[in-house]
């Protein structure tokens, strides 16, 4: 699959990139301001003469890490809430689903902007400059995106918990916890994997959007969105500065979406092509 290869190359690039391209992300060189791509600077330079390839490798690590970590948070919360709602036959289900609907109608981006802007300073003090913003962004993005997973898990649980094999486990005296963990959950996990794959790409977009609006990572941490934010005032003189990080975000998101779609086709028994 072409998309898996592209994503693999991107991940490989940002992981081993710093060894192959040892220019520092904050090496300022005023003699090489806003240079177009050349052999010395394959992706060109920005307004301070910093090498864009090095900055993009560094930013890619953060963007991808945010995407993966936020996906883990969203999936965990979603699975827990969905499982609780799906196993309860009483008011807990109603309450949890009302909560899910409430979160679905929250204005996500405004809330995201607000929380990050307001709590940035506090977390910086606890986890350090980079770590604080990272933890905050991951928790907030994950905390606002668990709803689709929760709904999916609940629906799966509703049909699975009545199936014969679960009944058999119940008849064998399996505790509720054992029924969930070793019988129902493994059977419900297929669609969850698909949903969480897509979650990675939307988390990457969310992080880039925040950074693009200037409210994500601080200026000295060049995530892809931040690079675009810095580049947008120089579009007329240095279009390469915006094009490379933008293309990187686009390629990553596109390949993740294609992988998610392929997984859905592979895992969904209803679909016959």
């Amino acid at each position: 699959m072409a998309s898996a290869t592209i994503l693999g190359l991107l991940i490989l690039g940002v992981v081993i990139g710093p060894w192959l391209w040892p220019i520092g992300i904050d090496e300022i060189d005023f003699t090489a301001r806003l240079e177009t791509p050349s052999w010395r600077h394959p992706f060109g330079t920005d307004d301070l003469g910093q090498d864009l390839l090095a900055r993009m490798i560094y930013g890619g690590r953060i963007s991808l890490a945010v995407g993966l970590a936020a996906m883990v948070v969203a999936t965990l919360v979603g699975v827990i809430i969905g499982a609780l709602a799906g196993m309860s036959r009483g008011y807990l289900d109603t309450v949890l689903m009302w909560l899910t609907d409430l979160f679905l109608s929250l204005p996500q981006l405004p809330l995201l902007l607000l929380v990050i802007y307001l709590f940035r300073e506090q977390l910086k003090a606890i986890f350090g400059l980079e770590g604080g913003v990272f933890v905050l962004i991951v928790i907030v993005i994950g905390g606002l995106r668990w709803m689709p997973v929760a709904r999916l898990v609940r629906a799966q649980f509703f049909s699975l918990r009545e199936k014969e094999f679960v009944e058999a486990a119940r008849a064998h005296g399996a505790s509720r916890r054992r029924q969930v963990v070793s019988h129902i959950l493994p059977n419900a996990i297929g669609p969850v994997i698909v949903a969480s794959t897509i979650e990675v790409s939307s988390a990457i977009i969310a992080e880039s959007t925040l950074s693009f609006l200037g409210l994500g990572f601080p200026p000295d941490i060049p995530t892809w969105g931040r690079l675009l934010f810095d580049a947008k005032d120089y579009l007329d003189v240095a279009p390469h500065w915006a094009l490379f990080p933008g293309a990187a975000i686009f390629l990553t998101v596109l390949s993740i979406n294609f992988i998610g779609d392929g997984l859905r086709d592979a895992l969904d028994p209803r679909r016959v092509s």
């Binding site: 977009i205 880039s208 959007t209 969105g225 675009l228 579009l235 933008g246 975000i249 686009f250 979406n257």
Partner: peptide, 10 residues
Amino acid sequence: FSLPTFFTGL
């Protein structure tokens, strides 16, 4: 839908 709005805008 893989092209984020901020990139299409630019």
